[in-house]
Simulated assay, not measured.
Amino acid sequence: MDNKPTPRGVRNNNPGNIDRTAVVWQGEDRSPEALKWEHRFCVFLTPQAGFRALAKTLLTYQVKHGLRTVKEIINRWAPPVENNTSAYVAQVAREVGVGTAEIIRLDRQVTLQRLVTAIARHENGGLFWPGAVIEAGVREALS
């Protein structure tokens, strides 16, 4: 029997492990209970809301910060001071189906969905959500 604890990103409906900031996301739980049990990361009411926030963040990286490759995006998402970023970049690029320095367009549903799926898998040590939930969150982010 597998007694591994449920990953934090799954418990928090936060597949990307987005840090809580002053910005309150659509679908984020800022109740006293959520703030008490989770001190650092956002807690979302649904996994779909968490995927929407992850996708919105990545879209902002591309539009506002000009990050165009998996390597640039992941280096900002998971900086080397906290992560083995080179391994993270390689895994995500492989899952997205591109080279680490290949320019990608996140305004395309399929590319953004592959990217958020790969990040969620890496952040949580597996994929815990059905494709329909991921797709719905990404679609909301793009609309």
Results as ranks from 00 to 15, higher is better:
residue 14 N to F: 10
residue 137 G to C: 04
residue 109 Q to K: 12
residue 127 L to V: 00
residue 12 N to I: 00
residue 21 T to C: 14
residue 78 A to Q: 08
residue 105 R to F: 06
residue 24 V to N: 13
residue 57 T to I: 07
residue 124 N to G: 13
residue 29 D to Y: 07
residue 84 N to L: 02
residue 83 N to T: 02
residue 54 L to C: 11
residue 127 L to P: 10
residue 142 L to I: 09
residue 96 V to S: 01
residue 51 F to C: 01
residue 26 Q to P: 00
residue 87 A to N: 09
residue 106 L to C: 06
residue 91 Q to Y: 10
residue 61 Y to A: 13
residue 66 G to M: 12
residue 8 R to L: 15
residue 131 G to K: 03
residue 26 Q to W: 06
residue 18 I to F: 12
residue 39 H to K: 15
residue 130 P to I: 01
residue 130 P to F: 10
residue 126 G to E: 02
residue 31 S to W: 03
residue 57 T to A: 15
residue 43 V to N: 03
residue 108 R to K: 14
residue 129 W to K: 09
residue 24 V to Y: 08
residue 91 Q to G: 02
residue 39 H to L: 04
residue 128 F to V: 04
residue 24 V to E: 15
residue 143 S to P: 00
residue 133 V to T: 13
residue 51 F to N: 08
residue 47 P to M: 03
residue 90 A to D: 05
residue 111 T to H: 14
residue 32 P to K: 08
residue 129 W to Q: 14
residue 1 M to R: 14
residue 77 W to S: 05
residue 25 W to M: 08
residue 131 G to V: 01
residue 77 W to M: 11
residue 54 L to I: 12
residue 10 V to T: 10
residue 98 V to F: 13
residue 98 V to Q: 10
residue 86 S to L: 07
residue 38 E to W: 01
residue 67 L to D: 11
residue 120 A to P: 02
residue 70 V to T: 13
residue 123 E to I: 14
residue 98 V to W: 10
residue 134 I to F: 10
residue 71 K to D: 12
residue 94 R to H: 07
residue 80 P to F: 01
residue 68 R to L: 15
residue 15 P to W: 05
residue 24 V to A: 09
residue 68 R to G: 07
residue 137 G to M: 03
residue 14 N to A: 14
residue 49 A to D: 11
residue 73 I to C: 13
residue 94 R to G: 07
residue 79 P to N: 12
residue 31 S to D: 08
residue 40 R to W: 02
residue 40 R to T: 12
residue 77 W to R: 09
residue 79 P to C: 05
residue 20 R to E: 08
residue 15 P to M: 04
residue 22 A to E: 12
residue 45 L to E: 07
residue 82 E to H: 10
residue 50 G to E: 03
residue 75 N to C: 02
residue 33 E to W: 11
residue 109 Q to C: 01
residue 33 E to A: 14
residue 74 I to K: 02
residue 131 G to F: 03
residue 33 E to I: 14
residue 22 A to H: 05
residue 125 G to V: 02
residue 36 K to T: 14
residue 28 E to Q: 15
residue 101 A to K: 06
residue 87 A to S: 11
residue 48 Q to N: 03
residue 42 C to N: 10
residue 95 E to Q: 15
residue 41 F to L: 14
residue 74 I to R: 05
residue 122 H to Q: 09
residue 68 R to Q: 04
residue 70 V to Y: 00
residue 39 H to N: 11
residue 94 R to D: 12
residue 136 A to M: 03
residue 14 N to M: 11
residue 97 G to K: 06
residue 124 N to A: 08
residue 36 K to W: 06
residue 83 N to P: 13
residue 59 L to I: 11
residue 94 R to F: 08
residue 134 I to H: 15
residue 124 N to R: 12
residue 105 R to W: 01
residue 26 Q to D: 11
residue 55 A to L: 06
residue 131 G to Q: 14
residue 4 K to T: 10
residue 26 Q to T: 00
residue 40 R to P: 01
residue 77 W to E: 09
residue 102 E to G: 04
residue 65 H to F: 13
residue 111 T to N: 15
residue 18 I to K: 13
residue 90 A to P: 03
residue 123 E to S: 11
residue 18 I to V: 13
residue 114 R to V: 08
residue 81 V to L: 02
residue 88 Y to M: 06
residue 8 R to Q: 10
residue 142 L to P: 06
residue 43 V to T: 13
residue 92 V to A: 10
residue 47 P to T: 00
residue 2 D to S: 02
residue 119 I to Y: 00
residue 48 Q to T: 15
residue 71 K to V: 00
residue 83 N to K: 07
